[in-house]
Every structure is written in structure tokens, then in C-alpha cells.
């Protein structure tokens, strides 16, 4: 199979970028999307006159670490549902296809280089309150506090988020509500997270806003591209938590 790739190239977050066209030749359908791009990179890497490697990020290649990104033909993580880009294989494309590859685009995700973006805004949202304040040691026995199975399951549904940022990339508004609500709902559902539930949601939403993410208009594009299928019901849950926390604030 042969493909024509239109790839965004940008030196760093200060420079402006542009699309360049590359050919990926002799690709087999079994190849993963990144293996396909690496065949192009291999050539670029050995050609002193060329543009050098296309910078791109991937790591675990099994859809769990959240390192890989890419918007492929306008869709975050490509045409298949419920997968990350690293789980996308070339059999999902047709021979001769033109493929447009862009980085995740959001003010809060500045481009580091080419297709690599800086998602540290997510880390700062977690740092704002995405934890249970418990020190190491002295935790009570794990079975001391029974947790209803469906509560644990609901927490797990939310906790599956891998922090890849596709929700922001896909959202027409560049909103990080799905990511933030997944963490808020995961900890909020569990009794261990309950004492800090109000403060957590206030702080995390504040940080989310401060990072320059857009607001949610309930279009659910995030849910459609989420590789872990995180439900937008958690956004509703967070809205409710946030309202309640705001109303009951004492300061």
C-alpha cells in the first residue's frame, strides 16, 4: 500500500508551522500507524538534506500510557472508535489514501515540535486537587471500609482515563471537562475521596479554567473519540458537584 501524508511540521512553540507532504511506500496492512510513519522517518533520518525526523510521541503501543496523540483526517486518534493512535493499523485505510496528520490543537496544549504537544496542563489540574490527602503508612486495613460494588465499578469507569488529551483535541471548544470530570468523579465516588470532594472539584475546575481550556457545550465529541470510552455522564456529575460545592462554600 502507498499513502500520501500531509504532516504538520513546526520547529517549536514560538515558530509557526506548515504542512509538508511525504510519501509512505510499500506499507503492509498489518503495520501500525506509527510503524508506517517510522518508515518515512527512517528515510528522513538518513537524509542529511531533508527536514529530519518528524517529531512524534508514542510509548507503550498498547493504548494505555496515553503518550500518543495525533489528529488523523480531523479525528483525534484516527477513524476507529475506542482506540488510541498506537492501536490503529493501516488496514483501516485504503491504498493511495491521502492522510492529514495534525497535532492536538488547543491553547493549553502548545506544540513542542511537529506533532508533539505539551500536555502538562493536565498534570497541573491533578496537582490542584486530584488526590486523596493521605500519607504513606498508617492506612487502615484495606477491607476496613466496605465499598459497594457498583460504587467501586463507577469509580473504576471514571478512573480508566489515560490522560491522553484526545477529549480536548476533539472538543470543538477545546474543553477539558471530560478529563477533569473523570478524575473528580473517580475520587468523588469513593468514601476515601469524600472528605475532600468539595474542595477538590472547586480547585480542579479553577485550574482547568486558568489553563485556558474552553467551556463545555455538551456536544459529546470527547466521548466519541475517548479511547477508554469515558462517559459524559461524569461531566454532568461534576457540574452537580461544582454547583453544590459552590453553594456550600464557607469562605
Amino acid at each position: 500500500m502507498d499513502f500520501t501524508l500531509h504532516i504538520w511540521r513546526q520547529d517549536n512553540n514560538k515558530s509557526s508551522g506548515s504542512f509538508k507532504t511525504y510519501r509512505a511506500l510499500d506499507i503492509t496492512p498489518e503495520m501500525s500507524f506509527f510503524e508506517m510513519i517510522e518508515t518515512v522517518n527512517e528515510k528522513l533520518e538518513c537524509n542529511g538534506a531533508g527536514d529530519g525526523r518528524i517529531a512524534l510521541e508514542y510509548d507503550c503501543l498498547e493504548g494505555i500510557c496515553g503518550t500518543c496523540s495525533l489528529v488523523i483526517n480531523g479525528v483525534a486518534h484516527g477513524p476507529n472508535r475506542g482506540v488510541t493512535t498506537c492501536q490503529l493499523h493501516m488496514r483501516s485505510f485504503n491504498d493511495g489514501d491521502h492522510i492529514t496528520i495534525e497535532p492536538f490543537r488547543a491553547k493549553a496544549f502548545p506544540v513542542t515540535k511537529d506533532l508533539v504537544v505539551d500536555r502538562s496542563a493536565f498534570d497541573r489540574i491533578i496537582q490542584a486537587g486530584g488526590y486523596v490527602s493521605v500519607n504513606t503508612g498508617g492506612a487502615p486495613d484495606a477491607n476496613a471500609l466496605p465499598i459497594m460494588r457498583d460504587v467501586a465499578d463507577r469509580a473504576m469507569d471514571a478512573a480508566e482515563c489515560i490522560g491522553c488529551g484526545a477529549c480536548v483535541a476533539a472538543c470543538k471548544n477545546g474543553s477539558a471537562m471530560l478529563f477533569t470530570s473523570a478524575k473528580v468523579s473517580h475520587l468523588g465516588a469513593l468514601p476515601q475521596g469524600a472528605p475532600e470532594r468539595s474542595k477538590r472539584v472547586l480547585k480542579m475546575v479553577d485550574q482547568m479554567d486558568a489553563e485556558g481550556f474552553g467551556s463545555c457545550t455538551n456536544q459529546y465529541e470527547c466521548e466519541a473519540v475517548c479511547p477508554k470510552g469515558i462517559s459524559t455522564k461524569f461531566i454532568a456529575q461534576m457540574n452537580r458537584d461544582y454547583m453544590r460545592a459552590s453553594l456550600s462554600r464557607e469562605d
Binding site: R105, A108, G174, F213, A224
Partner: peptide, 18 residues
């Protein structure tokens, strides 16, 4: 806020379910 959140738009636009 929304316009500021994505200063550079996608070249190729696609909508999945909105």
C-alpha cells in the same frame, strides 16, 4: 473563552457525533 482555547484551528475538520 472558546475562541481563545483553540488559536490555531484544524486544517481538516471532522465531526464524529456532535
Amino acid at each position: 473563552i472558546i475562541s481563545a482555547a483553540r488559536p490555531v484551528d484544524y486544517n481538516k475538520q471532522a465531526t464524529v457525533q456532535a
